[in-house]
């Protein structure tokens, strides 16, 4: 379980995040929505320990992530908005390289890579050079990289940005699958697609979580309507 407590962050004078708190249980896929510049990416980078918060704490299974960053990162999968991969490698060699770098023992690498490839439906491009892939396929490779070692926490930044409709659905299915074993946090603007598989949507406004809309117990259309309303400031 991931707990985010009172996170605050500012770029010099500009306050970006103030008192952000929420928690994500295993098996949950939480979406963070908000306007451009609301601080979604910043929040995810803080959760990925790529930035240090001004105050607040991140607890993963009760342990302070900022005090033990290496242990926390070993349970973390992070995908950034624009996939940054080694273009000179094939999908296979890239995923193997990443698994090795993350410290996976050699004997388990093949299984891990195979699993990630299967979930992300990369079998067809497994031996293809990354620079020959489409943007969507690259995003899938980055997703496979993030979920490679079955992390407990997955952070997916703008996961659907730049994808066409079939690809969004495909990625949505992947995220749903990943959410069975991880606490998933995604950001994005594609609310109609996100509400299809998100279990909760947090609306980030003025640097804090202005509303939390759960999907449990209501129809997806109703869930979408509530999220839309929350985004427009209706609470």
């Amino acid at each position: 379980m991931l707990e985010v407590r009172n996170i605050a962050f500012s770029y010099d004078r500009r306050k970006v995040l103030r008192d952000v708190s929420f928690s994500v249980s295993p098996g949950e896929a939480v979406a963070i929505a908000g306007d451009n510049g609301a601080g979604k990416t910043t929040l995810l980078k803080i959760l990925a320990t790529l930035m240090a918060p001004e105050s607040g704490a991140i607890l993963s299974d009760g342990q302070d992530a900022l005090s033990h960053p290496l242990r926390y990162r070993s349970q973390l999968g992070y995908m950034q908005e624009s996939p940054a991969l080694y273009e000179d490698m094939t999908v296979k060699s890239y995923l193997k390289y990443r698994a090795r770098l993350k410290g996976e023992p050699d004997k388990r690498i093949r299984r891990r890579v195979g699993e990630a490839t299967e979930i992300c439906r990369l079998a067809d491009v497994f031996d293809t050079m990354i620079h020959n892939l489409s943007f969507g396929q690259k995003k899938c490779v980055a997703l496979a990289d993030a979920m490679l070692l079955r992390p407990r926490v997955m952070l997916l930044d703008d996961v659907l940005a730049g994808l066409d409709v079939p690809m969004r659905e495909s990625v949505g299915k992947i995220v749903s699958t990943v959410a069975t074993f991880s606490s998933v946090i995604v950001t994005g603007h594609e609310i109609p697609d996100i509400v299809k598989w998100a279990s909760r949507v947090l609306v980030l406004r003025n640097g804090s979580i202005s509303s939390s809309v759960p999907a449990a117990g209501i129809a997806r259309t109703e869930f979408a309507a509530r999220v839309d309303k929350a985004l427009k400031g209706g609470g």
């Binding site: 990925a48 320990t49 790529l50 290496l70 990162r73 950034q80 940054a84 991969l85 410290g103």
Partner: peptide
């Protein structure tokens, strides 16, 4: 430049 630094730094590596 390519942004891969974030991927590297989010890995469990010193």
């Amino acid at each position: 430049r390519s942004g891969r630094i974030d991927v590297l730094l989010s890995s469990p590596v010193r």
